[in-house]
Write a protein that binds this DNA or RNA. Structure first.
Lengths: 122, 122
DNA sequence: CTCGTACTACGATGGTTATCGTACTTTGGC
DNA sequence: GCCAAAGTACGATAACCATCGTAGTACGAG
């Protein structure tokens, strides 16, 4: 890896769609899943740069990997390696540029839902 | 709607979820389909109260029925019979109350997409 | 009453997706 | 070098969903 000396960041690369190619239907489809919605909500709630394992999702590791990939390929999150961990962050600015207001309204709605049903997942 | 003696309105009933029971994931899932998105866009574009047949969708009649049902059961549209026709309208106010800003941002995003790709469907 | 229109119900089919377990890879620490 | 931790790749499975065709229902016009 000729990535001149960044010892903590892995040379492993992950594909991310560029902002202009993020598709609305794909984003909506990615958000139409309770587990992925909870991931996005956690990332938006000040938990940026969390490792996948820190989310404690009610699914197996391989399923978790799957959901993170769906979010990444939809253009909703960005992922990068730090050691063995893969950290994630919301592409808030990119989404705001491409679909203004969409992510905030979804997050707002999801937060409202959790106030109604505090016994829900995550 | 006035129950007694409305000769143009059929007695056939259609189930609609009440506003407080509209679920975010269901709404997002319903919108994550290009055909349903085009229906919603058409309804928002001043074509309220259109009969299903007026949309000229690139699918069969039974598939069209299916998509309208998904939208109705998600709480996105309201449907009622007028003679043999079944007309549809967006539940704009209900959605704005339940998920403020969500529908406008989706519609705005979809309109932007159509400016990029005017050769797309519908 | 009959016919055409508009839509629905049902069953089938094929494609996508969510889930899992197992085996593997990459990385960092000892 | 070896091991544990974190995650990935792969294959299997089951559920879901979009699509269709056919047959049927409701309504209005004549």
């Amino acid at each position: 890896m000729s990535e001149s000396a960044s010892p903590t960041v892995s040379g492993r690369r992950l594909e991310h769609p560029e902002t202009s190619r993020i598709r609305l239907e794909t984003v909506l489809g990615a958000l139409a899943d309770p587990i992925r919605l909870s991931i996005v909500c956690a990332l938006a709630g000040g938990h940026e740069d969390m490792a996948c394992v820190a989310f404690d999702l009610p699914v197996s590791k391989s399923t978790s990997t799957h959901h993170f990939r769906v979010l990444r390929e939809a253009g909703i999150i960005r992922q990068y390696y730090v050691g063995t961990a893969r950290k994630s962050s919301l592409r808030t600015d990119d989404l705001a540029e491409r679909f203004p207001g969409l992510l905030p309204s979804v997050l707002n709605a999801e937060r409202g839902r959790r106030e109604e049903h505090p016994d829900g997942p995550t």
